[in-house]
Amino acid sequence: MIIGSLVALITPMMDDGAVDKSKLDELVEFHIEQGTHGIVAVGTTGESATLDYEEHADVIRQVVQKVGGRVPVIAGTGANSTHEAIDLTQRAKEAGADACLLVTPYYNKPTQEGLYLHFKAVAEAVDIPQILYNVPGRTACDMANETVLRLSAIKNIIGLKDATGDVARGRELIEKLPADFAVYSGDDATAVELMLSGGKGNISVTANVAPKKVSQAAIYAIENNAEMARTVDASMASLHANLFLESNPIPVKWAVHRMGLCDAGIRLPLTSLSVEFRAQLEESMLLSGISLK
């Protein structure tokens, strides 16, 4: 089972929007050195929606090669077309990813039966461990706990990224799921509480900026050391909030840039963090012990 702090890695870009391959390698090394337990390539935070098809596959391939088996690599391969999700998932398998992360089909607003059949089709088509991803605030599609329970019976569907922020709902689901099915938080502000309720990790935006602290908090929480987990997490409370001053990944890309780890490049229709929010974000970084450059 993949556990711990799983960074939802940004895709570094130059000022003209081109993928910065050298900085991508450097970010992978940075996270391994800082104790991140796994890397999610080309998820929401990795700008999956602005990369073209070939770039998407290339970034996954490069991350897998640079990681070299040192930590698990989870590839974002979700799509609102089942055919496209199958193709991306197959490409990720061929690239050597350890697992895939598949978001609920966005915009289409499928029924719960449609969601079940979509994920079932991908799982049956590509023999690789697959993690469901429910983020209704972005997709306008909420996968019910009952649908997750149905899908947990499919052998290579191994987990769920729950980005609802509803800890009570997550706790109720965890209590009903088989023991070998992992629930991961997709909401940094509530991640520690979900892990203290039986979640196995945090697919984290904040880990891009404070990887060591997010890793520490995750391990304390998984080990049920509530006091230490909450203490470490509390030191990042303002950072968790301010990394969503504008739509993800706008703030986190600016934050990683201010750490001197990459250029500020981002692709339209996303734009660089608004000037009015920069001081607020940078103050929360400093409060969390992060140096600016």
Score class of each variant (00 low, 15 high):
Y116K: 12
L151D: 08
D142A: 13
G170S: 14
D127H: 13
P136W: 06
N145C: 05
F119R: 12
V122C: 07
V167K: 00
A179H: 14
Y133I: 09
K176G: 04
G170H: 10
L173E: 05
A125N: 10
Y133S: 01
L117F: 12
P178W: 14
F181Q: 09
M143I: 11
I174M: 12
R171N: 05
A125M: 09
G165M: 05
P136G: 04
A163W: 05
V126H: 07
A140W: 05
P178N: 12
L177R: 08
S185K: 11
L132G: 03
R171I: 00
V135D: 00
E175W: 04
L115E: 15
N156K: 02
G170R: 02
P136C: 05
L160W: 04
R150I: 04
Y116E: 13
E146G: 03
I131W: 01
V126M: 06
L177T: 13
E124C: 03
A144K: 06
L173S: 08
T164I: 07
Y184P: 06
N145R: 00
A144P: 00
P136T: 08
L173K: 05
E172S: 13
A168V: 04
P110D: 15
A168E: 12
I131F: 11
V122L: 07
L115G: 13
A144W: 03
D180W: 05
R169K: 14
Y133N: 04
L177P: 12
P178Q: 08
I157S: 07
T111Y: 14
V135A: 02
I174Y: 03
M143P: 05
P178C: 12
D127I: 04
V148K: 03
V183D: 12
R150N: 06
D142G: 00
A123Q: 09
A153L: 11
I128V: 14
S185Y: 09
N134I: 08
F119P: 03
A153I: 08
V183S: 10
V183I: 13
T139L: 02
A121E: 14
L160N: 03
A163T: 01
I158L: 08
K161E: 12
A168C: 01
S185R: 07
A168P: 00
V126L: 11
K120H: 11
G137T: 05
A123G: 11
M143N: 06
E175A: 15
Y116A: 12
A144C: 06
D180K: 13
P129A: 09
V183K: 09
A140L: 08
G114W: 13
R150P: 01
D180E: 15
L132I: 01
A125H: 10
E172R: 11
D166M: 03
T164H: 03
V122Q: 10
G165N: 01
T164Q: 05
R169A: 07
E113H: 13
I158M: 11
G159H: 00
Q130R: 00
N145E: 01
Q112E: 15
G170F: 03
P129S: 01
L132A: 02
L149P: 00
R171C: 00
A121V: 13
Q130S: 08
Q130C: 09
M143R: 02
T111H: 14
C141S: 14
K161V: 05
P178L: 11
A140P: 00
L177E: 08
T147W: 05
I128Y: 02
V167C: 03
Y116D: 11
A182F: 15
E146M: 00
A163M: 10
H118T: 10
T111F: 14
T164G: 04
M143A: 12
